[in-house]
Amino acid sequence: MDTDWARKELAHFLELTALYRPEDAPGVVDFSPRLSNRGASDDIVASAQVVEQILDRALPRWRTEVPDDRNKRVNRWFQHREAAQRADVALRRAEEIRERLGDNAPLVSAAMMHPWVWEGARALWQSGHYREAVTAAARKVNAEAQNKLARRDLSETKLFQSAFSQNPAKPGEPRLRLGQDDGGDTFRSINRGAMAFAEGCFAGIRNPNSHEDGLAELAENEALEQLAAFSVLARWVDSATVETA
């Protein structure tokens, strides 16, 4: 993320949504708690379109963690303003906080994963439904693989077993190939590994998440690890060439 640009956009939004109480009309005393914004409504809406995407990156859970309902009667943009203020601090002091707390390890963001994965998971992830978000991402990767291979007769484990099979392509059974087939061990190893990895993703992550009733919600960090696994698979599928008979 371009931190300087993001902070400027947040600052502009905060300027537009600065709150004030309008003067009462002559002879009228308004006891309403509502506050008005300094900027024009159209300008605020346009700015919010960009700011919401910044917030999704900087504070992925802002919609559920930043107070909302109790402040709607005060101002429509109250939640967005607090989220923008928090995000600005997070962006400005992220490196300092990691260093001071003794953990300057690289950060992983769901929004930075392969687009198929984040597009599939985004709505559920932002509402805190992490297990369902991972399942949705798995379905999206499966659907994109089907699209790339033009196959609807197979899905998930069987689809990827066929896709990365070491056997030559057949009519109606195209293959996905990672790298240039030079007949060497490295090429065979990479594609064999992709098949095994895909099997593990669907058998070990997607199936339990979808078919086991009563499972507790995933912790966010565990769900993030699972999303990352599907992101790896998505990048392989996206970059692979299709071999046809």
Rank of each mutant, 00 (worst) to 15 (best):
residue 81 R to L: 01
residue 218 L to D: 12
residue 127 S to L: 08
residue 95 E to W: 03
residue 206 R to M: 04
residue 211 H to A: 06
residue 195 M to H: 03
residue 124 L to P: 04
residue 86 R to C: 04
residue 90 A to E: 14
residue 130 Y to K: 09
residue 5 W to C: 06
residue 14 L to K: 09
residue 33 P to F: 02
residue 178 L to R: 06
residue 57 R to Y: 15
residue 52 E to A: 10
residue 15 E to Q: 12
residue 118 W to Y: 14
residue 65 E to H: 07
residue 227 L to P: 09
residue 138 A to Y: 02
residue 90 A to L: 11
residue 143 A to T: 12
residue 67 P to L: 05
residue 12 H to L: 12
residue 99 E to R: 15
residue 191 N to Q: 04
residue 95 E to D: 14
residue 16 L to H: 08
residue 123 A to N: 14
residue 23 E to Q: 15
residue 154 L to R: 14
residue 166 Q to N: 12
residue 43 D to C: 01
residue 2 D to F: 11
residue 230 F to W: 07
residue 121 A to H: 08
residue 51 V to W: 10
residue 104 N to C: 03
residue 212 E to P: 00
residue 80 H to W: 14
residue 231 S to T: 07
residue 41 S to C: 03
residue 228 A to V: 08
residue 214 G to Y: 05
residue 175 R to C: 02
residue 59 L to H: 03
residue 231 S to C: 10
residue 3 T to Y: 06
residue 234 A to T: 05
residue 99 E to C: 03
residue 54 I to F: 04
residue 55 L to F: 05
residue 207 N to L: 04
residue 238 D to W: 11
residue 205 I to D: 00
residue 16 L to G: 05
residue 191 N to C: 01
residue 125 W to G: 02
residue 229 A to L: 15
residue 55 L to C: 08
residue 69 D to C: 01
residue 120 G to D: 02
residue 188 R to Q: 12
residue 134 V to G: 09
residue 170 K to W: 02
residue 8 K to R: 15
residue 107 L to K: 09
residue 192 R to V: 00
residue 30 D to A: 11
residue 121 A to E: 09
residue 83 A to K: 06
residue 105 A to N: 11
residue 242 V to E: 06
residue 68 D to N: 12
residue 238 D to H: 15
residue 81 R to Y: 03
residue 213 D to W: 06
residue 174 P to N: 07
residue 182 D to R: 14
residue 94 A to P: 00
residue 221 N to L: 06
residue 102 G to C: 06
residue 209 N to D: 07
residue 110 A to P: 14
residue 8 K to G: 13
residue 85 Q to V: 10
residue 47 S to W: 02
residue 19 L to T: 02
residue 40 A to T: 05
residue 83 A to M: 08
residue 238 D to F: 12
residue 134 V to P: 09
residue 52 E to H: 08
residue 221 N to Q: 13
residue 1 M to E: 11
residue 151 R to I: 15
residue 47 S to G: 06
residue 172 G to T: 08
residue 79 Q to T: 08
residue 216 A to I: 01
residue 112 M to W: 10
residue 182 D to M: 05
residue 48 A to M: 11
residue 68 D to M: 00
residue 104 N to L: 11
residue 169 A to Q: 02
residue 177 R to I: 12
residue 167 N to V: 06
residue 20 Y to I: 02
residue 62 W to A: 07
residue 57 R to N: 08
residue 30 D to L: 10
residue 73 R to T: 05
residue 116 W to C: 05
residue 233 L to F: 09
residue 167 N to H: 11
residue 41 S to M: 10
residue 120 G to V: 04
residue 101 L to M: 12
residue 14 L to P: 01
residue 189 S to H: 14
residue 76 R to L: 09
residue 169 A to W: 02
residue 206 R to L: 02
residue 87 A to K: 08
residue 224 L to T: 14
residue 213 D to H: 11
residue 96 E to A: 13
residue 228 A to G: 10
residue 166 Q to P: 08
residue 38 R to N: 09
residue 164 F to E: 05
residue 191 N to F: 05
residue 136 A to M: 11
residue 52 E to G: 14
residue 146 Q to P: 02
